[in-house]
Computed example of a mutant assay.
Amino acid sequence: MALISVAELQAELGGGRPPVLLDVRWALGGPDGAQEYARGHLPGAVYLDLETQLSRPRRTGEGRHPLPDPVALQEVLRGAGISDDTRVVVHDAATSTSAARGWWVLRWAGLADVRVLDGGLAAWTAAGGVLTTDVPLPGPGDVTVRPGSLPVLDAGSAAALARTGALLDARAPERYRGEVEPVDPVAGHVPGALNLPTTQNLDATGRFLAPERLRERFADVSTGPVGVYCGSGVTAAHTLLALEVAGIPARLYPGSWSEWVADPSRPVATGPDAG
């Protein structure tokens, strides 16, 4: 299972083989995740920065959050105390958006046992979980990063999937329709893509919908190949996680819209209907 509840995590932390906790709090425009971590975090949690450790610097023509360099990522994960057989739990502040990115990157890197704390730090504190400002000093791990352990889409295969399968756009509807674009230089969506906003993966408490409800949500796109993109490959990972919970295989387009519009020759669609 890709998700873990607070109660399940508390039980595992009290067992003989507790998981490594990764705090990957991040939000577009702030607050700063490292500063939030310093104010209080789950006991034993190691902070990883989404911008610099779960991504690498952007090159010309790439999206805003390119996949991390495997060698650099391996060093980061070993420094967090992770080995090949380590159980890992990733969390963020509440909605699991950046945690899903961490989950996906670690699975892409070849780690098998990675879960997301459903509801994040908000669920932990709501259940009476304590926080600490103590920074852990984990022993060195020896994980071997195996990039490509999850399949990805590039711009060409994303465009083809929009024609032959289901390419999901996980952004807000107004960005998909091209009415606003607060981050990237061009508004709109990949022609043929379908809009299923990431926010609809969660219930009112900020936790993922039950598997059966997620299967209902994705019923119209679950019969063929599925791909997901967003603005830069972060929130799309949230929908990848929801699809995983629903038992539906899917691929991420890591470059997403920010990469798509970096090439002015690529077509752009606007309006409420795909294509």
Rank of each mutant, 00 (worst) to 15 (best):
A274Q: 06
E36N: 13
R163I: 06
A274G: 12
R207Q: 15
P66D: 02
T223A: 12
L121A: 13
G61H: 01
R175D: 06
S83L: 02
V71A: 15
L22D: 00
R266L: 11
T52Y: 00
L243K: 09
P254M: 11
W26T: 15
A172G: 02
D84S: 06
V130T: 15
L106Q: 06
L73V: 11
V226N: 04
S222I: 09
A11S: 11
L13E: 04
V226L: 05
L3H: 10
L28P: 09
V143E: 03
G44I: 00
I4M: 14
V183Q: 10
V180T: 15
W103G: 09
V24G: 07
A162Y: 06
A269F: 03
T164F: 03
P138H: 00
S96H: 13
L214P: 01
T52I: 02
T132H: 02
G275Q: 15
Q200Y: 13
L161W: 02
T132E: 00
S265G: 14
V89F: 00
T52S: 13
D84F: 01
L150P: 04
A160E: 15
G139D: 12
Y176D: 06
P147T: 10
R56L: 11
A99L: 12
A210G: 14
P264T: 06
G139E: 13
E244Q: 14
P185I: 11
W104H: 09
P254C: 04
L161G: 03
L21I: 00
A93E: 14
G29H: 02
A123I: 13
G119A: 14
G120W: 12
W260N: 03
R251A: 15
Q53Y: 06
R213P: 00
V46R: 00
R58K: 15
A38G: 07
P191F: 06
R25N: 09
L194Q: 14
R251T: 12
S265C: 11
L9G: 04
R215Y: 02
P136A: 00
G178F: 05
L42K: 01
V76C: 10
H41C: 05
W257G: 08
G16I: 02
A160R: 15
V226D: 03
A80F: 01
D273R: 11
L13Y: 07
A126F: 03
Y253K: 09
A236S: 14
H65M: 08
G156R: 13
E216D: 13
A7N: 11
T235W: 03
G148V: 04
D184M: 08
C230N: 07
R17M: 05
V130G: 13
R87E: 07
A72T: 11
L131Y: 03
R266V: 01
E179G: 07
Y253I: 04
P66H: 02
L28H: 08
L13C: 02
T239Y: 06
G102C: 09
T125M: 08
D113T: 14
L54R: 05
G14P: 05
E244P: 09
A27T: 12
A72M: 09
G188E: 07
H238K: 10
S98N: 08
R146H: 01
R207D: 13
T239A: 04
V6N: 07
P57V: 12
A38Y: 05
T95A: 15
V245D: 07
V268Q: 11
L3F: 08
G247S: 13
T239I: 09
Y47L: 08
R217M: 10
I4P: 14
V261P: 03
V105P: 14
L194S: 10
Y229V: 09
P68R: 09
G227N: 13
